[in-house]
């Protein structure tokens, strides 16, 4: 991303240099303007430079491209072994789920989710939190409800209604904590955040269910009838002493 942005900036500088009859290497940017270093009075707006670049290419957008191969890595994936290293700076995350389990119906409700993510430098913290919350919401769906059900070879859940994607009221309160341990190899010290949000919730929720019930979930999604079945089997084998939900107040 950083390399792509630099590529786009280089192209803009070339446009500005032509307009200002200067060397692209002398072009600097400040306050939305491009100008020759030391001569801010003769400037061209970045937006104008982008428009000119687009006109010169029959309306195509000015696009920067970039790629990055970490130091010491020849190729991302070894074509022979298929092993490799896809990132130079891996993020780390821990999430904590608090659940309520209806022992009689097997329904699991996630009450709270706390997501602590070490993502390196958070270039846009609000966007980082949003990505973690969105990922966690998908993780809740994976843990509890989302499933492609097949009956006689037919998909019985062909829409988001039957498939069981969580709605706003199914997503718990999510508290996000960003831990910015700067990675010297990441761009501006960043590690990454896009994928990390969805990975921990199923495990955290399953562990919370295990803590609440004494049974160890072994399959996702933990739809109510599966949870009920696990609880019943455990009770039959006397693993659970039986907390019991009061039906008499």
């Amino acid at each position: 991303m950083k390399a792509a942005a630099a590529d786009a900036r280089r192209q803009l500088a070339e446009v500005a240099a032509r307009q200002l009859e200067a060397d692209p290497r002398d072009i600097v940017a400040a306050d939305g303007q491009l100008f020759v270093a030391g001569v801010p009075d003769r400037a061209i707006a970045i937006a104008e430079a982008a428009r000119i670049a687009s006109y010169e290419k029959s309306g195509a957008l000015l696009t920067g491209q970039g790629s990055y191969v970490p130091e010491g890595i020849v190729t991302m994936i070894d074509p022979e072994t298929k092993f490799g290293n896809v990132s130079v700076a891996y993020p780390f995350a821990a999430q904590v789920a608090e659940v309520e389990v209806d022992l009689e119906t097997g329904e699991v409700t996630v009450l709270n989710l706390t997501a602590v993510h070490d993502l390196g430098r958070a270039i846009n913290p609000m966007s980082c939190e949003g990505q973690i919350e969105g990922g966690a919401a998908m993780g809740v769906g994976l843990a509890l409800s989302e499933e492609i059900v097949m009956f006689d070879g037919q998909i019985a859940a062909p829409n988001f209604h039957d498939y069981g994607m969580p709605t706003a009221v199914d997503v718990p309160r999510i508290v996000v904590n960003l831990v910015e341990t700067i990675d010297p190899r990441g761009p501006f010290g960043a590690k990454g955040v896009g994928e990390a949000g969805i990975i921990p919730p199923p495990a955290a929720i399953a562990n919370a269910v295990a803590d609440a019930t004494g049974i160890r979930p072994r399959a996702y999604p933990m739809r109510p009838w599966k949870v009920k079945d696990w609880i019943d089997s455990a009770e039959r084998s006397h693993v659970v002493a039986g907390k019991g939900v009061p039906d008499d107040g």
């Binding site: 059900v149 019985a156 039957d162 109510p224 009838w225 009920k228």
Partner: peptide, 23 residues
């Protein structure tokens, strides 16, 4: 039995929800 539960599970849930609703 369908995508929203098995027949056995549903019968069990009836026996759970009826006492709760009456209460």
């Amino acid at each position: 039995s369908d995508a929203r539960g098995t027949a056995g599970y549903r019968r069990e849930v009836v026996s759970v929800l009826v006492p709760r609703a009456l209460r």
